[in-house]
Write a protein that binds this DNA or RNA. Structure first.
Lengths: 145, 145
DNA sequence: AGTATATAATAAGTATACATACTAAATGTG
DNA sequence: CACATTTAGTATGTATACTTATTATATACT
């Protein structure tokens, strides 16, 4: 008689729970501060913050998403008036992405909020433990970039 | 001039990347072994493995999902012929969930595969490091159960 | 018993997340 | 230049993941 795995102690389950906690904290904090942005949307906004006129594929590569998902995210950011899409003269398949003034303002205002909220995600850990976890996660993530 | 956050070193990003890696490894391995199940579907199957005749809400609570999501997952498991839903005589709102013979077989066959694949998720880490990461993740996850 | 509250499941809506396929355009090679 | 391959973006389809609302049923309380 095969014993069932104790799922709750396996890496896969714990990682998912942590991700769940992470997005949950992000959403609550953002809402509390009066912003209407998901973590993915913020990630894209932040990536566009340097004003390099990246295209969608480049953004996707930088933050490790697939093109299809990022396409949708950018569409929503455009609808919110935070991002503009301009046809790229040098590559007629692509669009150059840039923040609107409103997008820049939001991004600036968000820096403090997002930085602070990151600590809440790991609020159960001490400073040392959190640092250790970050270290291990960075090593564990195969950066296939 | 506000410096943009280096997203790539924040907990939120690393956790998401790890989750991405986790589900990716899970899917590849399952496919390679000839199974057609997602990690969530396996989690539900494994939870039902004890044969307690749990209902959807109980399953959801155990593995920390919301009811709506689990509803869909179970529907798909039912369509695959792995799970049965029987009206609960004691609570006419609920359904008792049980594995079919095929479900039990799959679950048994999956134990080794899933256990093995968990190591691949953290293949960049040494045994000691992986253990440490697990430890920290368990502590970091607020088990609001 | 009658009523307020809580709960199980579903429905509807939004937002990821990714695979696959397709179109248009760019690039590499002979 | 002709042709094969690659790439940018979109479309389609499937599967989470969660919120809010709704319906039916239970439970608690008066």
């Amino acid at each position: 008689m095969m014993e069932k795995l104790n799922l709750l102690e396996l890496p896969g389950h714990l990682i998912r729970r942590l991700q769940q906690q992470s997005t949950s904290v992000f959403q609550e904090r953002m809402k509390a501060e009066g912003f209407d942005l998901t973590s993915v949307q913020f990630a894209v906004l932040n990536t566009l913050g340097k004003g390099e006129g990246l295209d969608q594929a480049s953004v996707a590569k930088r933050i490790a998403y697939d093109r299809a998902t990022i396409g949708g995210v950018i569409k929503r950011l455009e609808q919110k008036g935070l991002v503009t899409r301009t046809p790229d003269d040098e590559d007629r398949r692509a669009f150059k992405l840039n923040l609107t003034e409103q997008g820049k303002d939001q991004l600036a205002a968000l820096q403090t909020v997002v930085l602070a909220l990151q600590k809440d995600i790991l609020s159960e850990l001490s400073e040392t433990e959190a640092a250790m976890l970050l270290e291990l996660m960075m090593k564990a993530v195969k950066s296939r970039g």
